[in-house]
Simulated assay, not measured.
Amino acid sequence: MDTPAIRLSQLTVRHHAGSRGVALDSVSLSVAQGEQVAVIGPSGAGKTTLLSTLAIAHKPASGEFALFGADPWAMAGKERHRLRTRLFLAPQVPPLPPRQRVVTAVLAARLPQWSLWQALVSLVRPQDPEAAFAALSRFNLGDKLYARVDRLSGGERQRCGLARLVLSSADLLLVDEPLSALDPALSRMALAALQQEAAGRNATLVCSLHQVEMARAWFPRLVGLRDGRIVFDAPREQVSDEMIAALYANEQPPAASSELHETPDAIAIGACY
């Protein structure tokens, strides 16, 4: 049997070191290499903490944690850093330097592969603007190649962060709420590009989504998270309306939209370019 890309067993993560507050409570999860999974749940469920933990940003308080068959927190610092080069975390609000040009911000995804000299040179003369343009074009942002980051709208910054993912060489893609600032048409374009990119390199994709209907339409497997616990983990065909209602009990789930029910098969691949 192939080693899973992600394996969590009874994993507990606290809000702060030494804190009694639990952000993730006895979470067990296994994700195969190349699998695409959506994580859904109400605000404060622990979705962002889960992705940050997978990105080796939070050290678990207890339980077992393995990426590509190895425990990152049992590694020496240099080994853990090398493991991090196999991951890419796209946060909901990308940390893009406001005074930087978009081309430079996107090419920063190549930093793990570059020498210090290449990185410094690219700040003055972007090393591969063609690649940056191609990545941005997949999110309908090619015309912003030389714009300043602080001139972008919130949705444009979000897509710029996703273009970074395309230029990474990561085997595990962790994407947090990528559609929060996008309209339905751009949301479909962004998800199509993300899924095609992951499939093209056989990378594992774990994506947290606030848009439940988008998750149900686009992802073959859904993980429902609430109060730091996994409520369900099932193929989308087995996720019923009743399960969704229970997940969001006493919460207000996102309203369904007929536009959001459109499946990936209904969207031409060329829409991403």
Rank of each mutant, 00 (worst) to 15 (best):
R7C: 00
S9Q: 11
T12R: 08
H15M: 02
H15T: 09
H16G: 00
H16N: 04
G18F: 14
G18E: 12
G18N: 12
R20G: 14
G21L: 09
A23Q: 03
L24A: 06
D25C: 02
D25I: 02
L29R: 07
L29S: 02
A32R: 14
A32W: 08
A32K: 12
Q33K: 15
Q36A: 11
G41K: 07
S43L: 04
G44Y: 13
A45N: 04
K47S: 06
T48C: 04
T49N: 01
T49I: 06
K59G: 03
K59S: 07
P60Q: 09
P60V: 05
L67W: 01
P72Q: 08
M75H: 05
K78S: 13
R82L: 14
R82T: 11
V93P: 00
P94N: 05
L96V: 02
R101C: 00
V103N: 11
V103C: 14
A109C: 08
Q113P: 00
S115F: 14
W117E: 10
W117T: 09
Q118V: 01
L120V: 12
V121A: 11
L123D: 04
E130P: 00
A131D: 05
R138G: 11
L141Q: 14
D143H: 15
K144D: 01
L145N: 10
A147P: 01
D150P: 04
G155R: 14
R157K: 15
R159D: 04
S169L: 01
V175C: 10
D176I: 13
E177M: 12
E177G: 12
P178Y: 05
L182T: 12
L182N: 12
R188L: 13
R188H: 15
M189L: 14
L191Y: 10
L191H: 07
Q196P: 00
N202W: 09
A203E: 08
A203Q: 10
T204E: 03
L205P: 10
V206A: 06
V206R: 04
S208L: 03
V212N: 05
E213D: 15
A217R: 03
W218M: 04
R221T: 10
L222I: 15
L222A: 06
V223W: 11
R229A: 13
R236Y: 01
R236K: 05
E237K: 11
S240V: 02
I244S: 02
I244L: 13
Y248F: 15
Q252P: 00
P253G: 03
P253W: 11
A255G: 11
A255L: 15
A256C: 01
T263D: 01
T263N: 01
P264M: 07
D265H: 10
A268M: 08
I269Y: 01
G270M: 02
